[in-house]
Amino acid sequence: MTLPGFGPKAFRAQGRVAFFPAVVAACGLFAAAPALADPIGDWRIADGSASVRIRGCGGGALCGAVATAKDPAMVGRPVLLSMKPSGEQWAGVIVDARSGTKYNGYISMRGEQTLKVEGCVLGGVICGGQSWSRLK
């Protein structure tokens, strides 16, 4: 991908490539790039009936468990297991806290305040998901 005004032709000066301006421009672009948002923290699930606390669980993976719930029996149940970075998302296992059913799953940040959570079956052929809101 070439940004407008940053291709090889943009830096030609009297038949030679102007190297210094290209380096300066590239440094400015990388310095201004925001860091990838971090999903560690507390999240309200889509229907508002519970919150999930996501934390590191070793080896660069993230895990999450029910932190608060309308049904106290749900608190402490794991819902995200071994979510490891994979590009701009984390991939691992999502557990239905009520039934214990496990799914291949993905989480990805949609800004600082929204986490997209997806579970898939049949090798990823059918996926469903929801958006969680950051609490703190």
Rank of each mutant, 00 (worst) to 15 (best):
V23N: 08
A65R: 11
W43D: 00
K70T: 09
G7A: 15
A65D: 10
P34T: 04
M83K: 01
E88Y: 08
L80S: 00
G56N: 12
G59D: 09
V24P: 07
P78S: 05
C63K: 01
A37L: 05
I40Q: 08
A50G: 07
V52Y: 00
F6N: 14
G5H: 08
K70Y: 02
R53W: 02
F19V: 15
T68G: 04
I94M: 14
D42S: 10
A50P: 05
A46L: 10
I54R: 01
L81S: 13
A33I: 10
A10D: 14
W90S: 00
F11V: 11
G100D: 07
G5V: 02
T68Y: 02
C63Y: 01
G92T: 11
C57Q: 02
D38N: 07
G92A: 07
P34R: 07
I54G: 02
G28A: 06
A50M: 02
A73S: 05
G59A: 06
V75C: 00
A91T: 15
G100Y: 04
A32D: 13
Q89M: 12
G87Q: 04
D71H: 04
A33Y: 09
P8T: 15
V23L: 15
V17C: 09
C63L: 01
P8A: 14
P39T: 00
A69I: 08
G41Q: 02
C27V: 14
